[in-house]
Design a protein around this nucleic acid. Structure first.
Length: 185
DNA sequence: AGGATGATTGCCT
DNA sequence: GGCAATCATCCTC
């Protein structure tokens, strides 16, 4: 049981909201997502804003595939591609499956800090550029629908300098596994 | 509790 | 040549 490509063939902000609580697994390692952000072509903060390049080509490929890029020369970031030119950045999840493996990859870091950030999450799940453009409905990926509905809070995205006003950060309200607490109005 | 800093790759001006 | 959807560490209050 895994989410079909049709789930992703929608605007990124819509998909992002619905991804909270969905379990993301890579080789069986991962857990329910608690923090994501949406990006699209009309958004100056998005890699796709200036059209396709070799790096962001996956964002213009079919929905339901992975877009992985290197950030600050060091970390990997994992996105799930939605409508052409749009994607959802996975920023944090609750580490539930394959805990020992995640801790080994993260240097024995405490549980709350295993996947509380896009770079940390990729390290814990073993995601690299090798996963770029791979389909999400086939191994090593697996996406399991949320079992309950969750209380979703929205707010401004993190780490960007343009498009700051667009409130496209979605989090599970009150989760202790976020990269940063949500600033509620 | 909060601010500064280095690591280091790919893309754009 | 400069900056970016970051993180861990090392400061100073």
């Amino acid at each position: 049981m895994t989410l079909p490509p049709t789930f992703f063939a929608r605007p990124a902000a819509e998909v992002a909201h619905d991804l909270i609580g969905v379990t993301l697994l890579v080789e069986g390692v991962g857990g329910p997502m608690v923090e994501v952000e949406a990006y699209d072509t009309a958004d100056p903060a998005s890699h796709s804003f200036n059209g396709p390049t070799p790096r962001n080509a996956a964002m213009f490929g079919p929905p339901g595939h992975a877009y992985v890029y290197r950030i600050y020369g060091i970390h990997w970031c994992l996105n799930l591609v939605c409508e052409p030119g749009s994607a959802v950045l996975i920023r944090a999840l609750e580490p539930l499956h394959g805990l020992p493996e995640m801790q080994a990859r993260r240097g024995g870091m405490a549980e709350r800090q295993l996947c509380s950030g896009p770079g940390k999450l990729c390290q814990a799940l073993g995601v690299t550029i090798a996963h770029n453009t791979m389909p999400l409905d086939a191994p090593p990926f697996d996406l399991l629908p949320a079992e309950q509905s969750h209380d979703v809070a929205t707010g401004p995205r993190i780490g960007i300098t343009k498009g700051v006003q667009t409130p496209w950060r979605f989090v599970r309200r009150g989760s202790p596994f976020l990269s940063k607490p949500m600033r509620e109005a």
